[in-house]
């Protein structure tokens, strides 16, 4: 299993949606870390564990951008079946991630 710990590998203070909104955006997280790790986990035939705990909190747009990009790029069911989201501090983030994965982008 591959693991991404956002607090340790990306930032303690995630930003908003787009690069234009400022540093450490959802788009940046997708490009820099999430997409690559997901591809590697698919190649290795293992699941990708994403740990959301440890940060100051997430803007809903950050999670939505990163995970809706992933879902639309690789297919919603395929993404959701290969992800393990850990969010013990705010379990509701898991629901937000799931909704984002299944969201159809225009």
């Amino acid at each position: 299993m591959r693991t991404i710990n956002i607090a340790q590998q990306f930032t303690l203070t995630p930003g908003a949606r787009y690069y234009t909104d400022g540093p450490k955006s959802g788009q940046e997280f997708y490009d820099v870390l999430l997409k690559k790790s997901f591809i590697q986990s698919l190649e290795e035939g293992v699941k990708l564990k994403v740990i959301l705990d440890g940060t100051d909190g997430y803007a809903s747009s950050f999670l939505n951008e990163a995970f809706s990009l992933l879902g639309n790029e690789f297919g919603d069911d395929k993404v959701w079946n290969n992800l393990i989201i850990i969010s013990e501090e705010v379990p509701k983030y898991i629901d937000k991630v799931k909704k984002s994965v299944y969201e159809k982008r225009k």
Partner: peptide, 9 residues
Amino acid sequence: VNVLSKYSK
């Protein structure tokens, strides 16, 4: 954004 995220959390 960070203050908003912290409050929302």
